[in-house]
């Protein structure tokens, strides 16, 4: 009888956010597949602090709902994601426009999952009151293109 051995490469790295702040995180080279047929939904306030999330968000992030609510959305930021992607996200939303893109998200345990994310401003009586983000399952072709693209962007940012 043979036993499968899953090698988990663990390392600690520093994430530099586009606002100039930074944080140390542990990352694992282990992808968690996006669940079929589900949407991950969350809402934030104008500052990007999470105010609502659905069960799929909780399941995929690895955090409990209590741990998530009140945290900045950057809690999911994976160090392989270029700062420019998030700057583009926030610049687009602040213009009251819809943003979409492929994102590698960090789970609490350091593993990751890819999503196709769409974010929109919640406009009430002409004012932005917060933001809603919905993620869906991306194709492997798109993920592979983004792995290369984001690696190049990261090199340019160094």
């Amino acid at each position: 009888m043979s036993t499968d051995v899953i090698e988990r490469t663990e390392k600690t790295t520093t994430i530099n956010y586009f606002d100039g702040s930074s944080k140390q995180v542990t990352i694992l080279d282990e992808e968690i597949p996006y669940p079929d047929g589900k949407l991950i939904v969350s809402r934030t306030d104008k500052q990007g602090i999470i105010t609502h999330c659905n069960q799929s968000f909780v399941d995929m992030s690895g955090y409990t709902e209590e741990e998530i609510i009140g945290q900045p959305h950057s809690i999911l930021r994976h160090p392989d994601m270029p700062r420019a992607a998030f700057k583009d996200l926030w610049d687009t939303l602040k213009r009251s426009e819809k943003w979409h893109g492929y994102v590698k998200n960090l789970r609490k345990d350091g593993s990751y999952y890819w999503v196709y994310a769409i974010a929109i401003p919640n406009i009430r009586k002409g004012e932005i009151m917060g933001y809603t983000s919905v993620r869906r399952k991306p194709s492997r072709t798109q993920i592979n293109e983004c792995i290369e693209l984001y690696a190049n962007m990261m090199q340019e940012e160094q």
Binding site: V41, R43, K98, I118, A119, I120, N122, T132, S133, V134
Partner: peptide
């Protein structure tokens, strides 16, 4: 309703 409409806009 506004939230559902926002969601539909993302989809």
């Amino acid at each position: 309703t506004e939230f559902m409409i926002d969601l539909m806009d993302t989809l």
